[in-house]
Amino acid sequence: MSTHAENKNAVRTYSIVLGALLTLTAVTVTAAGINFGSAFINVVIALAIASAKASLVALYFMHLRHDRPMSAIIFVTGLAMLAIFLMFCFLDTLSREQVQPGLTAQAPARAVSISARILSAS
């Protein structure tokens, strides 16, 4: 069933992927120390690198690249649902005061201007 060449091939692929994963880990640690102008950009960069690493794991270690499409469909559907969940929760939290400017005065202490916090974070 297994030929020597196939065996060597898989070992080589997995080794290259591992090398890429370790390199990206070093990159993300380095990037965290650099000021890109706003904390938001740093978060985006960190998540982009993490997603690149996760994609490598999914495509090669979890064989999604060569597997039947069903596995990838299930996986992507799950991620899409998470995206929907994330999107609406953020949409609500971010838009609460922008649409109801008068609410802050009556709202509990928690509602101290969220937009100001976002600005101060950046």
Partner: peptide, 20 residues
């Protein structure tokens, strides 16, 4: 999966989210 916020129209959810 896109409609859960209709339970929260009077819960202090943002008007934009409620409308959507």
């Amino acid at each position: 999966f896109l409609v859960w916020g209709h339970h929260m129209f009077v819960s202090g959810q943002s008007v934009l989210a409620s409308a959507l």
